[in-house]
């Protein structure tokens, strides 16, 4: 079983009512092998001003098989997918699933009207590859936050062009190597990263906190994924509805490990 990650996508599930709430159909995930699912408990979500679900009490998730006939997972407490509770130890799926037949069973009235943020890690062979070399290089990127509503592009670092990436590591300094102020850990919880290759989002709206690996018991390794720095970006959750004055002018610091 290949545990390495390649594609990742944030899917928001609107909790419209108590009881069954279907997970929306996502074309990019159709016929894909889903490796893992993470739940991200946070208030501010990307591209929406609706609040996210944080309290997983009496919340359950069911995942249907690719034909929608039977459940691979039935009424699993959502807390089991909460990366903060499991310390990064992911629930293994490793099967194709039917999203539109999967659902979240909400028995918590406080969560009605909110969104559940699920991260689907899926197999993406078009933009990943096997190891070609044992030699890896660590490089760094400082991403300045200039815009709270639109995209904050990753700098176009020529030395990382065309590389195959194995790890993305979030750092939490107060001052970055190029002497910019960095976002605090609390602020970083509202930052999402999208890594694009051409017009395809290899990693889409993934919370950068999932790359804060030091506290996790399971390490996330990518299968030599490829993406273009100049078309990749960070966004801030909340769609510009909250007060973000503290974000602008600060930076996010990331280390990338790639194949030499």
């Amino acid at each position: 079983m290949n545990n390495k990650l390649s594609g990742g996508k944030l899917v928001l599930v609107h909790i419209k009512q108590l009881g069954i709430n279907k997970i929306p159909y996502i074309e990019d995930l159709r016929d894909r092998c889903i490796k893992y699912i993470d739940f991200y408990p946070v208030t501010l979500l990307p591209d929406t001003d609706e609040p996210g679900v944080q309290d997983t009490t009496n919340m359950y998730i069911s995942i249907a098989d690719v034909f929608g006939n039977e459940y691979l997972i039935k009424d699993l407490p959502l807390e089991r997918l909460n990366y903060e509770a499991t310390f990064g130890v992911k629930q293994s799926i490793h099967k194709k699933i039917s999203l539109q037949n999967s659902a979240i069973n909400c028995q918590n009235a406080n969560n009605v009207g909110k969104y559940v943020a699920l991260i689907f890690w899926y197999d993406l062979p078009e933009f990943s590859a096997r190891n070609r070399s044992d030699v890896t290089v660590v490089d760094s990127v400082t991403v300045p936050i200039t815009n709270v509503i639109r995209y904050n592009s990753l700098p176009d670092e020529e030395r990382m062009t065309g590389k195959r990436f194995r790890q993305i590591l979030l750092g939490t300094p107060t001052i970055t190597p190029d002497l910019r102020n960095a976002l605090t850990l609390t602020q970083l919880k509202n930052i999402y990263i999208t890594l694009r290759k051409g017009s395809y989002n290899v990693i889409e709206n993934i919370p950068v906190m999932l790359f804060y690996q030091m506290q996790m018991l399971q390490k996330s390794i990518f299968a030599n994924i490829i993406f273009d720095m100049q078309s990749s970006f960070l966004t801030i959750g909340g769609a510009g509805t909250a007060t973000y004055a503290d974000y602008v002018g600060k930076s996010v610091f990331l280390n990338f490990v790639y194949e030499k």
Binding site: V138, D139, Q167, P173, N255
Partner: peptide, 19 residues
Amino acid sequence: EIARNLSAEQIIFFNNHIV
């Protein structure tokens, strides 16, 4: 070049996944 500006957090003793 093996590492450029690798954050010390990635090699500090309480990191469970030292680079």
